[in-house]
Design a protein around this nucleic acid. Structure first.
Lengths: 206, 206
DNA sequence: AAAGTTCTTGAGCAACCATTCAAGTAAAGG
DNA sequence: CCTTTACTTGAATGGTTGCTCAAGAACTTT
C-alpha cells in the first residue's frame, strides 16, 4: 500500500516520518472529490496536507496518480459505507434501499453535496483511459448492485415487493438510477426533480 | 457567435480568413468530446484543426473556453439531433423513445462510443464551477425530457401505454436513466447490463 | 558521543499550459 | 501600382505542471 508501512514497522533505525500517510490520503481524497483528478495539482495537495512535495513523493511511489488511487480506496472504505448505511447490513430490505436514495437526494440538495460522488466523477473523467481506475469504479458499481439485490431478495422473502420483480435486474436499474441521480444533481436541480426520479424507480416496488 | 462572421460578411476589404471557423469548432468538439475540456490543450486543437494559435485567438474571442462553448452548441445542433432521431419529430411516440435508448446502447457498445455524451461528460467535469456551461447542459437535459414527455403523451393518446403513467414524471425518469446509462457505459459493461437498465425503465410502459 | 539511516526542506528541474505579439502576407479599393 | 486592412506565422510570454535532488535534520544503534 504505502511505501511507508514497511519501513516504519520493520526498520526502526532512522528518522521517523513526521506525518500520517493515511491522513494525507484522507485530505487528498477530499481535494480530489471536490475538484477532480486533473484539476487538483500536487501543489493543491501540498497545501491541503501540509506535506512538502519531497515527502509526498517519498511516501507515495507513483506520485499524484498513486495518491489518487489510494484516495479512491479510502473513499470506498470510509465514505461509501457511510452513504450505504444500513443497506450494507445483512438484514437490509426495501426500506434500507429507499433510505439510501433519500440520503443521496439530501446530500445533493446541500451546496457541499453538489460535488457528487467521487466514484461517478472519476468514472466520467478517467474510466475510458485508465483501466486500473476503471476497475475500481466498476467495483463500486458492483457493490451498490450487490447490496441492492440482496436487500430486494430479503424484501421479496418478506412479501414487501411484488412477486414479479427480478431482484438482480431491479438492482441493476437502481444502481444506474443512482449514477443518473449524481449527474442530474450536478446541475443544481430542484429537490422535486430528484424525488421524481427516485419515486419512478421505486414505483413498481410499492 | 464567431468574431469572424461580422468581419467576413460586412467588411470586404482585407485578407480573407483562410480557414472555416465552423470547421474549427467541429474538429474541436470532437477533441473535447474524446478527452474532456481540461485534458484538451490549445496545442491539441492546433493539431486537430491545422490552425495556429494566433489565428485561433483571432477568430475566437475568449480563447479555449469560448471554443468549448461553441463546441457545446454545435454538439446540440449537430450530434444531439442525430441521436434523438425521430424522437424529435412531432409524431414520435413510444417506439421512438425506445429507439433512442436502443441507439444509446449501440453507441456505447462500440469502442469509439465509449467517449459517451459530451453533455454528460461536461456536466460532471464543469457544471459545478461554471454556471454558463451548466446552463447549456441543463438545457440539454430539459430537451431530452421535453421530447420524451411529448412522445409519452402521444403514446397515451394512442393507448400504447397504461393510463396510470404520468408522462412528465416518466420523462424525467427516462432522462435520468439516460444519464446513468452514459456513466455505466464508461466502465465497458456487457450489452446485457445496459439492456437490463433500459428494459427495467420501460417495464411499466409495456 | 559517533555513525548510520531515513526524513524534511526548499530550491529548482524540464515540460507544458493558455495566451500574446511583432513581423510577414494576401486580398480589395483607389 | 500603392495603400489599407485583416489574417497568418512563428517565436516567445509568464505561469503552472508533476516531479527531483542536494543539503540539513532527527532518530536509533553502536
Amino acid at each position: 500500500m504505502f511505501l511507508s508501512e514497511r519501513s516504519c514497522i520493520l526498520v526502526g533505525v532512522s528518522r521517523p516520518r513526521q506525518f500520517d500517510p493515511s491522513e494525507v490520503v484522507d485530505r487528498s481524497m477530499r481535494e480530489f472529490w471536490a475538484k477532480g483528478y486533473r484539476d487538483t495539482s500536487v501543489g493543491d495537495l501540498v497545501v491541503a496536507t501540509g506535506v512538502r512535495p519531497g515527502s509526498l513523493y517519498g511516501a507515495f511511489d507513483g506520485g499524484k496518480r498513486q495518491i489518487f488511487v489510494e484516495a479512491l480506496k479510502l473513499y470506498s472504505a470510509l465514505i461509501v459505507p457511510q452513504k450505504l448505511g444500513a443497506l450494507e447490513r445483512p438484514g437490509a430490505s426495501l426500506a434500507e434501499v429507499r433510505a439510501y436514495f433519500d440520503g443521496l437526494i439530501s446530500d445533493l440538495m446541500s451546496p457541499e453535496g453538489r460535488v457528487g460522488c467521487l466514484m461517478v466523477n472519476t468514472t466520467v473523467e478517467l474510466a475510458a483511459e485508465d483501466s486500473e481506475i476503471a476497475n475500481l469504479t466498476r467495483g463500486h458499481m458492483a457493490r451498490l448492485e450487490r447490496n441492492a439485490e440482496r436487500a430486494l431478495r430479503t424484501a421479496a422473502e418478506r412479501g414487501e415487493i411484488p412477486v414479479g420483480i427480478d431482484p438482480a435486474a431491479k438492482a441493476t436499474q437502481l444502481m444506474a438510477t443512482g449514477m443518473g441521480l449524481m449527474v442530474v444533481g450536478k446541475t443544481n436541480p430542484g429537490r422535486e426533480v430528484l424525488e421524481t426520479i427516485v419515486d419512478a424507480a421505486f414505483a413498481d416496488l410499492g
